[in-house]
């Protein structure tokens, strides 16, 4: 009976500071778009944008920057076992990725400017397939470093060329 089992969520949540990064990034994107609108309307005078439209734009950007990270935080999860890495990400649409430890080729740790300020890091695990590197965003730096170390140790133990 195939419906009798289901895939559970990965066990670990990302850092509680991760939503701050997502929210800030959303605000920055909103500001850039706003600046582009400003140039188009006020400087280049391509079209008119009344004050209420500006207000509406600001409200939408703010609402998105608050609601999206909160919702996203409930979705983003990860788990690493002896034999596999398992992640879940997204908010409206969601994606789960599972890669066996024996097929892991590289493990990357990266930090953007914003993430560095907040002490966060992203871990990317790639396999020999061009489709689907497994990414965990918004981990505490120490957690990320421990994860990288753990993954490297486990993958070193695996024989073969992982294709």
């Amino acid at each position: 009976m195939p419906d009798a089992v289901t895939l559970r969520d990965p066990s670990q949540r990302v850092s509680t500071r991760a939503p701050l990064v997502w929210g800030a990034a959303a605000l920055v994107r909103g500001l850039f778009l706003g600046a582009a609108l400003f140039v188009a309307t006020v400087v280049a005078e391509l079209f008119d944008m009344p004050a209420w439209a500006w207000a509406a734009y600001a409200v939408v950007v703010l609402a998105y920057a608050v609601a999206m990270p909160v919702y996203r935080y409930r979705v983003h999860r990860w788990e690493s076992t002896d034999t596999a890495v398992y992640t879940q990400r997204g908010w409206l649409s969601r994606e789960r990725r599972i890669a066996p430890m024996s097929r892991v080729q590289t493990v990357d740790l990266e930090q953007g400017v914003l993430s560095r300020l907040l002490g966060l890091a992203t871990v990317t695990v790639t396999t020999a397939s061009a489709a689907g590197p497994v990414r965990v965003e918004g981990l505490d730096r120490e957690v990320a470093e421990r994860l990288v170390e753990e993954l490297t140790r486990r993958t070193e133990a695996e024989p073969g060329d992982a294709t």
Partner: peptide
């Protein structure tokens, strides 16, 4: 060498 399970809204 891995599974991706995607779900749109």
């Amino acid at each position: 060498i891995g599974w991706n399970i995607r779900q749109s809204f």
